[in-house]
Structures are given as C-alpha cells and as structure tokens.
Amino acid sequence: MAQNVQITCINKTPRMDPHDRIHSVGGVNPDGTRWKLGQQEAIAGVEAGKWQFYVSVGGKSVWVIVATSRWGNKYLKTEDDGEQPNNLLSLPECP
C-alpha cells in the first residue's frame, strides 16, 4: 500500500518548459527531519506504488500524479492542474 506523503517544497531548473522545470520535490517527515527526492525517483516511487504524493495549497489538498508530455516525457503535476502545473510550481524552494 502506498504511503501518503505531502510535498511542501520543490527545486526548479531554469528551463521555461513547465514540464521540465521541477528538478526535485521535498517535505518534512513526522519526526521533523526534511526529505528530498529527484523528480525521476519520485515518479518511479509513484509508479511502483511506494508513495502517493499530495500538496496543500490555500487549504485544499490535491493528489500529485504522473503525467506524460506530448513529447513522451514523464513529469509530476497535481490532479487539479491543467497543462500548466501551477500548484507544484507555486511551492517554495527546498533548502
């Protein structure tokens, strides 16, 4: 069974394409320590059923899913996002 994990921060690359901008995602463990995963590792964990990520923006929680761009590249976005993954991109930078 997948573990539900909240993403609270991201690291972006300088690319303009929103599908390629997220380099890593992160958050805080129950014990207060920080965690961070590269986007590809996070995608692999979702697809393997290891993690189910979510974000909370404006008091609303939404699931993070794996999507595929029109060029065949996998990326993370929230269910509520359209073509532009604004919920993830609006998160602060991870330390």
Rank of each mutant, 00 (worst) to 15 (best):
A2D: 09
Q3H: 10
V5K: 06
Q6P: 11
I7M: 04
I7W: 08
I7P: 06
C9R: 02
I10G: 05
K12S: 08
T13L: 06
R15Y: 15
R15E: 15
P18M: 07
H19K: 11
H19V: 04
I22C: 08
H23G: 00
V25E: 04
V25A: 04
V25Y: 07
V28Q: 09
V28H: 00
V28N: 01
G32N: 06
W35Y: 09
W35R: 05
K36L: 05
L37Y: 15
G38C: 06
Q39F: 05
Q39Y: 05
E41I: 14
A42E: 09
A42W: 12
A42R: 08
I43P: 03
I43T: 07
I43G: 07
A44K: 15
A44G: 05
G45Y: 11
A48C: 09
K50A: 13
W51M: 10
W51D: 10
Q52D: 12
Y54T: 03
Y54E: 07
V55E: 12
V55G: 04
V55Y: 12
V55A: 11
S56Y: 00
V57A: 09
G58F: 06
G58K: 01
G59T: 10
G59N: 11
G59E: 10
K60H: 12
K60Q: 15
S61F: 05
V64R: 06
V66F: 09
T68W: 04
T68G: 01
S69N: 02
G72I: 04
G72H: 11
N73I: 01
K74R: 14
Y75C: 01
E79L: 14
D80K: 15
D80W: 14
D81K: 10
G82A: 12
Q84S: 07
P85A: 01
N87T: 12
N87S: 11
N87C: 10
L88V: 12
L89W: 09
S90Y: 03
S90F: 02
P92T: 04
E93C: 01
C94W: 11
P95W: 01
